[in-house]
């Protein structure tokens, strides 16, 4: 599917997905308005989107474009004021109760009074997993993010990048097939970020999760995604959806190839256009 060399153009709302496939996430005419003291703020306007299972979707745009709001709406942390939004074919609230997704925040947000293993155990405790199963799951996800030796350490004993990996492990512990990530590497330096991006891709390949990834870095979005959703502010809306022509195997130096640069250019153009008519 991603072996074409041309950048495909899709009108938003009709992107990807063979007919009959149940989309992981589907938005149709989604609007979301916040009532504030200064009057209503139109955070999302007429958002149409289809995310197929196994997709890696990046949401990119300047601050205030609604990318985080859209992610939070998918997680049922915000509720659309219009349109329909489904996750795995059901409403976001039902999907959450069915443990459809794991959420990774901008900060790791590990509990300082729990060890790394204890932090990963947190969702398992809340969801009522049997004690015997917890240990096996913790071992599995710690191995997945290469933190096995740090199970008994406290968060403050780990670097920022390691803490963020632990928080990814926490989101993976309960087998949700969707991973929602809100600028998870935004607070990390570039070198650590490159490394984590590479690891995230290999983790995605091994687990075959559907990943929604909010970022404001063009190279990050292009490097990671199979689908890039470009958004614009005031009101928050989707201005372009780009299907990436890059292969699934992506070494870091793919960023110097003409294909990569072409996609990055189109993202930049999309952001610019959104800014002009915004």
């Amino acid at each position: 599917m991603h072996n074409g060399t041309n950048v495909h153009t899709h009108e938003h709302g009709h992107a990807l997905g063979a007919a009959g496939d149940r989309p992981a996430i589907a938005a149709a005419g989604v609007n979301l308005t916040f009532e504030t003291a200064d009057g209503p703020v139109h955070a999302l306007k007429d958002v149409n989107l289809r995310v197929a299972p196994g997709d890696f979707v990046s949401f990119i745009g300047p601050s205030g474009c609604g990318k985080t709001t859209l992610l939070r709406a998918i997680a049922a942390l915000e509720h659309p004021t219009g349109g329909t939004l489904t996750v795995n074919g059901v409403s976001p609230d039902e999907a959450r109760r069915a443990r459809a997704y794991g959420y990774v925040f901008q900060a790791a947000g590990l509990y300082p009074w729990r060890t790394i293993a204890g932090n990963i155990r947190l969702p398992l405790e809340i969801m009522g997993y049997p004690r015997s199963e917890m240990a096996a799951r913790i071992d599995k996800v710690l191995a997945l993010v290469e933190l096995s030796e740090f199970a008994k350490k406290y968060p403050w004993q780990l670097s920022g990048g390691m803490q963020q990996r632990a928080s990814i492990a926490r989101a993976l512990a309960f087998d949700a097939d969707i991973l929602l990530m809100d600028e998870p590497f935004g607070a990390l330096d570039e070198i650590v970020r490159d490394r984590l991006n590479e690891e995230l891709l290999s983790l995605w390949a091994r687990t075959e999760k559907t990943i929604c990834f909010v970022t404001h870095s063009i190279p990050e979005a292009v490097y990671l995604s199979t689908k890039i959703v470009v958004m614009s502010p005031r009101p928050g809306r989707i201005t372009d959806v780009i299907e990436s022509p890059l292969p699934k195997e992506r070494p870091l130096d793919i960023r110097d190839t003409p294909e990569f640069i072409a996609v990055a250019h189109r993202v930049r153009e999309g952001l610019k256009a959104g800014h002009l008519d915004g």
């Binding site: 997680a75 997704y101 794991g102 959420y103 925040f105 947000g109 509990y111 947190l122 809340i126």
Partner: peptide, 16 residues
């Protein structure tokens, strides 16, 4: 807010 949101994504009860 973030730590509270995290527990909401787990559908945690007020007691939890």
């Amino acid at each position: 807010a973030m730590q509270l949101d995290l527990l909401r994504t787990y559908s945690a009860s007020p007691m939890q």
